[in-house]
Structures are given as C-alpha cells and as structure tokens.
C-alpha cells in the first residue's frame, strides 16, 4: 500500500479563539508530485501543514494519506509516512548532537539499534552532512542546520515530505545547495513557501491559498506567470519567468 497519495477534502479549522483559519480546502496530490503551497502571510499555509501529520485536528473535513484516513488512531502511522521539515531548524534540532537528533525519530519508532545507526548514517550521507554527526546542532551554520533538519526527517523513511519555508535564512549558496538536494529526492513533496523562484525550479504544480481557501490551482509556470492572479493574492510574478516567453 502506497502512502504517497495525499488527499484533502473540504477541510475547515477554527482556532480556539474563534479565528477561522481554513474554510473548506480541498486538493489531491499524487505519487511523486512536487507541489507548492503559496499565499500571503495569514493565508492558512502553516495551519494546513499542521493538519497533514495530525498535529491539528480539523473541525470539519477529511484528510487521507494513501488509503489511510487521518484520525487520532492513525496519527502515529501517518507521522511516520509524512515527514515534516519546520521553518526554524532551531525548533527541530533539540538534541545534544546531530547524531542523536537524527536518531530521535527512528528511536521513537522502536527500531533496533543497528537499524537506527544505519538509518542515521545514510540520512546524513544523503544530505552530505555525515562529517557533522558528533557536532552540537546549534553550532552549525544555517545551511547545515537546514540539511540536518531534513536528515532528521529522512531517517524516518517517509513517503511524503512536507516543508515549511525551506529556504528561509539561507544565503544564496546555501539556498542553491538546498534546491539541488530537494531536486534529487523522489518523494512526494509539499512545499509551503514565499520563495517563488524556488517553486519555479522545484515544483510542477502550485496551489494558491488566500484567506483559508484554495483560490487557484494548476501548472506552476502557467500560474506564477499570471501577474493579475499573483498580485491579487499578495504575491508577485517570479523574476525568472519574465525572461521566458510563454508558448
């Protein structure tokens, strides 16, 4: 059974203080797809992401990961299938050493020590950070932190990668490396970001959120090139696309 499919149907969510953050979001992402979630601040991107691994429970609507409906009972299994990379690596890297941080997820999954070791090493090699295994995470550069944060998720062998602003706080070189790294992944990817240039390079499809609703969905280049649409929802047309001639 594949978990690579993500399906969200009519998702509603209101915070305890009464704010309606999501007002009926629906979309479907299929195996191996790379999808960007864009929208202005407060559009509901982060709230939506927090639903995808069951951290928040919708007030209405349904989420399916593969064949599994996401409910309280399946949350643990779904968390293993959906890897979340958060916006601030400092929130994600809380253990004393890089190794222990990457091992945190496999350890919670109850894997045997050999398997944990193997997973940690291969996840770190995958992101090119194997040499940092005994370093304290908070002493790393922003780019290294980001890569290790991704490794912590890879070590859990997820089917779907969900990322919140993966390129924030990175310098141009770090950002370039990140893009190359993400390009090399075969996972189904959902990326919430303001970095539309990154979307152009990485994503085939774009979902535009505004005020808790999906306002547009379609081919990345096509959608991002639509200046009126972009401006209407607090975004802008990526610079790189201005030099492309649509046809």
């Amino acid at each position: 059974m594949s978990h690579h499919l993500v399906e969200v149907r009519d998702l509603h969510f209101a915070y305890p203080d009464g704010t309606d953050a999501l007002k009926g979001v629906s979309f479907r992402i299929t195996h191996g797809e790379s999808v960007a979630l864009v929208g202005a601040n407060g559009a509901g991107k982060s709230t939506l992401l927090l639903h995808l691994n069951g951290y928040l429970t919708p007030t209405r609507g349904e989420i399916r990961i593969g064949e599994t409906p996401l409910i309280r009972e399946t949350a643990a299994a779904v968390r293993r299938a959906v890897g979340m990379v958060f916006q601030d690596p400092d929130d994600q890297l809380f253990m004393p050493t890089v190794f222990e941080d990457v091992a945190f997820g496999p350890l919670n999954a109850g894997l045997p020590p050999d398997e944990i070791e193997h997973r940690v090493v291969s996840a770190l090699e995958r992101v090119g950070m194997a040499h940092l295994r005994d370093r304290p995470p908070y002493k790393l550069s922003a780019g290294e932190k980001r890569a290790v944060a991704i490794a912590t998720v890879l070590a859990m062998a997820p089917d779907v990668l969900v990322m919140d602003e993966p390129s924030s706080h990175l310098d141009p070189r770090g950002r370039r490396r990140l893009i190359e790294l993400l390009k090399s992944f075969k996972h189904t990817k959902i990326i919430a970001t303001h970095d539309l240039e990154l979307v152009v390079e990485l994503c085939s499809r774009v979902i535009v959120l505004d005020d808790g609703r999906v306002v547009a969905e379609g081919q990345a280049v096509e959608l991002l090139n639509d200046e009126t649409l972009m401006l209407a929802h607090g975004l802008e047309r990526p610079h790189s696309l201005r030099h492309l001639h649509p046809h």
Partner: peptide, 19 residues
Amino acid sequence: DRVYRAMAARGFDGKIRAL
C-alpha cells in the same frame, strides 16, 4: 510549542528514549 510540534512529528509520545 513549536519544539513540541517538531518532536511530535517525529513520533514523540511522551516517552523519552535514549541510546
């Protein structure tokens, strides 16, 4: 809260395991 979220996302269930 964000740290907890990141822990929960990696299967933290209140038990702290160590190698």
